[in-house]
Design a protein around this nucleic acid. Structure first.
Lengths: 238, 238
DNA sequence: TAGTGGTCTAGACCACTAT
DNA sequence: TAGTGGTCTAGACCACTAG
C-alpha cells in the first residue's frame, strides 16, 4: 500500500468522523511528517488528494482548512456507479435485468465507441426501482473482447465491482454528457412514467480502462423528478 | 510564472494544435527534463495537470498517451462561466440584464449561503439569448461585503472576469447541483419558453474564494432542449 | 535489458499569515 | 519573527512495458 494513500485514507476517515470538524485546521505539514514518519512530498501528495476530493482547502501561511461537507449533501463527484451511489446514499432500491445478450456491433454503435462493426458486444438493460417504481433505466453496451462473460448475477449487483474485483480491470476515466430528451416508446414501456411525463434525462457515458481502451458505452435514463446530479468543481485557471 | 505551469501550457497548446495527435505518445519524462531544463518532479507536475484536464493518460513502462479530444466534443469540465463557455464554443449569444439591485439577505438565502440575515447582497438576473430566444436565465446572488460595486457593464460581460481581473478575487471551487423542475410563473415571464414546455433544468451553484468564503449563489435556468452538460471524470479509487 | 512512469526522500528557497 | 504552505532540485529504488 502506498504511504500517501494510507495518509489520505486516515485523514479522510478522521474528517468524516468529525475529528477535524468543518472550518478547523488539519495538523501542519511539518507535524504530519512526524506523525506518519514520511517526507514532506508524501504528506503533500495526500493533502492534495484531500483537496481534489473537496475535503480541504489549503492556504499558504495558514494551513489546511476543513471544508463544510453538508451543504447540498456531500458531492458524489467523479465516476461512480449506481450501486455505489445507492450504498453511500442509503436509498433502498432494486435492480431488475430486463435484457442481457450478445449482439453484433452496429454501425451506429461503432460511430460512438469505435468498436469494429460486427464484432461482439454485450447489450444489457436494467431497470432501477425506488419505492417500487422504475425511475431509472440503464442501457449498457460492453466490449465482449474485454468482457467475455457477463453473469446475470453480476448484472443484478454491480457490474463495476465484477469488472474490477473479478476480472481485474482497471477503470480509469469517462466522458459524460447530460441532456434532456423526449421519451421514446421503448423507454415508456420499460419505465414507470406518469402520463404527463414528456421528457427524460439521459446521461451518456463512454468509459475507458487504464490502457485507454473504451470498454463501455452507457445510456442512463432518469425520470425527471428523480434526477439529481451533484458535483464539486475546482476552478480551472490557466 | 511557475515552471510547471509553463510546461503545461506549452504541451497543452501543442496537443490542441495537433503536434501530438490522439493516440500518440508525448516525449518521455527524461526527454522533457532536458527540453525544459527542469527536474523530474516539475515535469511530472505538468503531466499530472494534463492528465487531470483529460488531455493524456499515463502508463507505466509505456509513456504519456494523448487522448482523443473529439468524442462528445471536448469536455468543458470544472468551473466555467457562461461567458467563457460561449467563447470556447463560439455560439453567438447575447446577455441582457433584467434586474440588478442590492437586497437584504432573506432567511431563505441565509439558509443556503450562510450569509448573515439582513446583510447586503446583490441580486442580478440576466437573460441569455441564442438565436434571438431567451433560453437561459441566470439568477445571481452576490455577497456585497465582498463585491461592493457591481457595474451593469460588468454584468453584461462576464462577472467572473470582473471579479478576477478588476477586483482581484481568487475564485477557487464550487458545489453544483443539477435538477429538473416545473416552471414557475416568474421564469415563464422572463424566458422564451414554448407552450408545451413544462419543466426547466436548474443548475444551482455555491461558489467559494481561495479563503473558503462563499461569495456567490447562482441559479442557472435552462430550457430543456438547449441544455447540455459534458464532463470528464476520473474514477475515484480508494 | 533498456527505457518508461510511480513512489519516496532530504534539503533548499520562496511567499504568505499570524503575532 | 516564527510557522505555514508553494515550488524546485537531485537522487534513489521500484514496477511495468517492450524488443
Amino acid at each position: 500500500m502506498n504511504k500517501f494513500r494510507e495518509i489520505f485514507l486516515d485523514l479522510e476517515q478522521k474528517i468524516v468522523a468529525g475529528d477535524y470538524p468543518a472550518h478547523s485546521l488539519l495538523p501542519s505539514e511539518n507535524q504530519l511528517i512526524k506523525v506518519y514518519s514520511v517526507s514532506r512530498e508524501t504528506v503533500r501528495k495526500a493533502l492534495n488528494m484531500l483537496r481534489d476530493a473537496g475535503y480541504i482547502q489549503k492556504k499558504q501561511g495558514k494551513g489546511s482548512i476543513v471544508l463544510d461537507l453538508n451543504r447540498f449533501d456531500f458531492p458524489i463527484s467523479g465516476l461512480t456507479s449506481f450501486k455505489e451511489l445507492q450504498e453511500t446514499q442509503r436509498i433502498p432500491s432494486k435492480t431488475t435485468v430486463a435484457e442481457i445478450k450478445k449482439i453484433a456491433v452496429s454501425p451506429k454503435l461503432h460511430e460512438i465507441t469505435d468498436w469494429p462493426v460486427a464484432s461482439e458486444s454485450w447489450k444489457l438493460i436494467r431497470q432501477r426501482s425506488i419505492d417500487g417504481e422504475v425511475v431509472i433505466l440503464d442501457k449498457d453496451y460492453l466490449d465482449a473482447s474485454i468482457i467475455p462473460e457477463l453473469p446475470k448475477e453480476a448484472a443484478e449487483q454491480s457490474i463495476y465491482d465484477y469488472f474490477e474485483n473479478q476480472l481485474g480491470l482497471d477503470i480509469s476515466y469517462a466522458q459524460k454528457e447530460i441532456t434532456v430528451e423526449p421519451i421514446t416508446k421503448e423507454t415508456r414501456d420499460l419505465m414507470d412514467l406518469r402520463p404527463e411525463d414528456q421528457h427524460v434525462v439521459i446521461v451518456r457515458s463512454l468509459v475507458y480502462l487504464e490502457d485507454t481502451r473504451c470498454f463501455e458505452y452507457t445510456e442512463s435514463i432518469h425520470r425527471l423528478d428523480k434526477f439529481r446530479f451533484v458535483d464539486f468543481a475546482r476552478r480551472r485557471k490557466i
